[in-house]
Amino acid sequence: MDYVPALARWLHFMAGIMWIGLLYYFNFVQVAALKAATADGTAAGITKHVAPRALLFFRWAAVVTWLAGATLLGGQFVNAFTLQGGMAAIGVGAWLGTIMLFNVWALIWPNQKKILGIKPATDEEKTKARRVAFLASRANVMLSIPMLFFMAGGLSHRGVFFGM
């Protein structure tokens, strides 16, 4: 059935745009906006109304992106993750995406719950949570650059970049 990989690719793109789009929103827009909003006493608008909604779509888009990507790899899933059978380039993209998914669910979301008051935390725990969530988010921005390179050029355009 050719419909499954075709639909998986479509879903992978849509969910991936939502995931990475929100990641870039957090890092390129919200971090600086929150600093300015804290200074003029309007931070609650972001932390109460914007951030929880953005995080909801962010973390679930990450899951959908990964699942659609795994479906897209299909029978080549193991070859990609073991970097074999000519799948090393897309495999590196898949590994980077997987590490980023881990960062979302194991580091960013649990710490954001403390920061936003969804989970009770002391001021000291909140300060630590802010730093961990910030660095995990920034690490994901850094990883997204090679991840998108290998996603874009690692399989369908591998002839251009890797001469195969």
Partner: peptide
Amino acid sequence: MKNPLDSLWGTVISGLILTLILYFAVKCIL
């Protein structure tokens, strides 16, 4: 030393350097 991830430019440049490193590593494998 300052953490490059503390600035957006540091983050983007780190990502580009990582891309180059991984590109040549994968080129060796393929």
